[in-house]
Design a protein around this nucleic acid. Structure first.
Lengths: 254, 254
DNA sequence: ATTGACCTTCACGTTGCGTAAAGGTGTAAG
DNA sequence: CTTACACCTTTACGCAACGTGAAGGTCAAT
């Protein structure tokens, strides 16, 4: 059986252009060229194309595929193992990305208007963490502890104070909330104190504060499992308790 | 504070070329150009670059970033949700790829020389499954059942019989093995029958058979958790039992 | 005046094809 | 025999996001 470009393309489910390209880069040459200059492929080429597509399906680059299919003695397993590592790396990166996107979505969904500054803080922190992980040891060995510390401080120095404040507030909210939860009354002074601290914390992220928005966010803490999980981590029911306290604090429960 | 390209580049951890490119595509213009034609960036540009890098870190394309940062009223959350979907898709694809690469590695590691034909069989089956999933409904509605069936048959007809045989053999091996395992003796007739069937099955993948290789593969079933998991799925210990049976069948245990 | 480290604008290379453009070929129908 | 239409060919630009020179101007210090 012999095939022209179009026929083979249809058979294999690729475009004719792809076949011409494969010809061009010497990865799949036609069996022969007929008198009119048409590319004619035979069974061997069909088989070879299958191989190529097989590896392509695995995400292997064409140049690597070339090595694999042109040199039959080439260690395909090694190439695949290397490729596997790359895939795993990519997947890890994707997981990080998805997590971050999730976080960002969670923030924007809460109608929080995170200032650019804060956005960058998180971003920089992320970068620092990554740099630490990747190059931390190497750099520390080369330049000593001090330089690294200074470098990190420099990257972070823009509003380190703000960051510290918000972190501290977050901690206070959690502690106060835990105490209030132990008492069990969302209308108690300490519960309202927790709500107040939560408002302060919130004001680091929101440009304008309103009782309605605050109450809405509190409700979302209960409705959205991501937030619920965060608040209920220590004590199940905390998210609900916080919502009630905030609703009372915001005067939403009459 | 004002920055030249290089300074800003260093501050933000990108290349000067990147900044010039961002200028070129109108995603980040310098605050002004000085008398010598140098790009001069100010605080606002620094902030904007942070935004850009933030989204870039999330894997968002530059054109999408452009929309997000140039139109402040643009729904960033929606863009992010869409982006999230893309990421999840990619991840799923990656998982499939990794699984397939794993399988292929497992095969080559087992020194199985899967013929191209068989490789392609698997490949085609994969493609058919995918096509079915994606377009099956649409195509069926358009062309009716028959056409689809014929089309699938056509793609598969190359060695459908071989495929059927090997599938049937695989089933027989599993069943015989289960029976033998219930008796508990890897030297029993039925256990050796399972080993024999396993050899037949194996011969569909291997070009040449040797007792040593067969025994080696059997050992790998125990050593490599991927295989162990496969054989132990119904009854834990089956992989080990099969290894013993094959070793006896191959005359490796005296 | 001369380095050397900056800056500028082209402009080509990367990957895996898609997509015309401009023209030749094969075959069936009018 | 012409016409139509589907197929084939080569050539070449376009895509994303820059990397990497090349050729030449600028700035500060020596």
């Amino acid at each position: 059986m012999e095939y022209t470009v179009q026929k083979l393309a249809q058979l294999a489910g690729v475009s004719a252009r792809t076949l011409r390209y494969y010809d061009e880069i010497n990865i799949l040459k036609p069996a022969r060229i007929n008198s009119s200059g048409y590319r004619i492929y035979g069974q061997a080429e069909v088989d070879r194309l299958q191989q190529i597509l097989f590896y392509r399906e695995l995400g292997v680059g064409l140049d690597s595929i070339k090595k694999i299919v042109t040199a039959p003695s080439f260690d395909g397993a090694m190439a695949l193992r290397e490729h596997r590592e790359k895939l795993l790396e990519k997947k890890k990166q994707l997981d990080v990305l998805i997590t971050n996107v999730d976080k960002t979505i969670a923030l924007t969904e809460g109608r929080m208007k995170m200032s650019n500054k804060e956005k960058f803080e998180g971003f920089k922190k992320m970068m620092i963490d990554e740099n630490e992980e990747k190059y931390g040891k190497e750099i520390r060995e080369k330049y000593g502890e001090d330089t690294v510390e200074k470098s990190n401080a420099k990257v972070m120095n823009m509003s380190q104070e703000d960051y510290d404040k918000v972190t501290s507030l977050e901690k206070q909210v959690k502690e106060t909330l835990a105490q209030a939860f132990a008492l069990g009354d969302p209308a108690s002074d300490i519960a309202l104190k927790a709500a107040e601290l939560h408002k302060q914390w919130l004001c680091f992220y929101w440009n304008e504060y309103s009782k309605e928005a605050h109450a809405g966010l509190a409700q979302m803490y209960v409705d959205d499992e991501r937030f619920t999980a965060y608040y209920d981590k220590e004590q199940p029911g905390t998210a609900e308790f916080l919502r009630d306290a905030i609703h009372i604090y915001a005067g939403m429960k009459k």
